[in-house]
Design a protein around this nucleic acid. Structure first.
Lengths: 120, 120
DNA sequence: CTTACAGTGAACCATATGGTTCAGTATAAA
DNA sequence: TTTATACTGAACCATATGGTTCACTGTAAG
């Protein structure tokens, strides 16, 4: 209950920063070290480390250090809770879900096409 | 482009606070004055005013002052952008959309049932 | 062994955030 | 016309945030 609220807090806060959303985009493409990310976002190692820690705390990213390099990947959490929260409020806002339906359908079609393409 | 990023920033930031999410829930039930909200959330008028302003700036709430009382209602924005962003990242995280599909279907069924009930 | 590299932690800094109090202004009620 | 209500704005406060530098540790490479 309380945990749930805290998690929404930390997740939404984690998402409320351009750099961190950028890092998530980046990691969606491929895993990266702190150094990689720091360079890509023109920031000190220490600064990037902080962002990664915040994302990690929100469960959006996981990291593993092997040797001297820490590799960051997207976390296992898939924003179900946050999606559900937003959905619930879309319900309050509007009596219809057509817009999201379209988004989901579109992404689903796109994703299936991609998967198909990759598989061949 | 830049605007888009700023909007995600402000919206996610607006949602990253328990009180503000509470206000949204509240307004989902019925419109309310600043005084109503301040009482409900045990906070000064000034404090609540700030929260409402933040929600207003994010387009999540609209207000209208008539006489000396300002009435707050849910805004017209329906979090399409934010839902889309989260969806896009769910795509990165997972190859399947079943979970959200279920959520949407469930809410849609529930909403349709409600609408049906109200209409009769 | 020495040197370079990747990350980490502490300290610091400017600004933002979430809240307050206090002193107004405008409107409604008596 | 007085008084109470509803809000507003400025000022203030403590803490959080997003970033830096600097000193350090551990690991890899020469």
């Amino acid at each position: 209950m309380v945990q749930y609220k805290i998690r929404l807090d930390t997740t939404f806060a984690a998402l409320a920063d351009v750099t961190r959303r950028g890092v998530l985009e980046q990691l969606g493409g491929s895993d990266a070290s702190i150094t990689d990310l720091a360079q890509r976002f023109d920031m000190t190692l220490t600064g990037m480390k902080k962002h990664v820690s915040i994302l990690e705390q929100a469960g959006l990213v996981t990291t593993e250090k092997v040797g001297r390099v820490r590799t960051c990947k997207l976390g296992l959490r898939r924003l179900e809770e946050e999606a559900a929260w937003i959905e619930r409020h879309r319900e309050l806002w509007s009596a219809r879900f057509d817009a999201l339906d379209e988004i989901v359908d579109h992404l689903k079609r796109k994703e299936r096409a991609d998967a198909h393409r990759k598989r061949r």
